[in-house]
Design a protein around this nucleic acid. Structure first.
Lengths: 114, 114
DNA sequence: CGGCATCCCTTATGATACTG
DNA sequence: CAGTATCATAAGGGATGCCG
């Protein structure tokens, strides 16, 4: 197989790290405010900022500001983000379908390890 | 969205961490020996062992030993592993399709950040 | 509200040497 | 060949306080 180049690994990273996937899934239904995301998934401000920056940098989400009486900022998936999210969805659903299989396998593995 | 339970995160972990995905992709075409994998992807023995153990524990790969004149051990994908691998394939191909988009996005992001 | 900065801890990964 | 053991470093993540 061809090696995993940087971009590939970064994309896999967006899927595999602690928060990116969760944030994207949260934005799948609708755009949300910073504090809204923060409360929804119990992420610390630091990690949320880092996560949002990385996702925005890679064009997966967009930061939308609306300035009026009370300036607002919201985050939404881009088209690219949405299409990645759908693959993410298959991954989540794969996990759920194989949940029992995995648990069983772990039990057997642990039993064999004695 | 429903929170990411442990198993879900572990599965995403198999995709996102440094080596699991690479090892699985390597096994997609055929089963391989320990040393073969090692040389193919330049992983250290320690990380390879850890990676193989986790994948085997979760039932994604199987450790096949054949003892005869010269005992051998090989690793192969299980059915579950193969089905996860196919999603992994979509992810890789998504990365490739969006490679340019991502690079552009990063350039614009960096330019805006000045 | 929407962040950024600092400190600190945990986990992931790497280098290397050694063993059945 | 197929690992294990030990040590060291890097990256990821959390707690907390401050700011425009």
């Amino acid at each position: 197989m061809e090696k995993l180049c940087a971009v590939r690994r970064d994309v896999l990273g967006h899927v595999g790290n602690r928060w990116s996937a969760l944030v994207m899934m949260l934005l799948e239904t609708k755009s949300r405010r910073y504090s809204e995301i923060r409360k929804s998934c119990g992420i610390t401000p630091r990690m949320l900022t880092l996560t949002l920056h990385e996702l925005e940098r890679d064009g997966l989400i967009a930061r939308i500001t609306r300035d009026g009486d009370r300036p607002q900022v919201a985050y939404a998936l881009t088209d690219a983000g949405r299409s990645l999210c759908s693959i993410l969805g298959s991954l989540i659903s794969w996990s759920d379908r194989h949940h029992d299989h995995i648990i069983d396998s772990r039990d057997r593995f642990a039993a064999a390890g004695d």
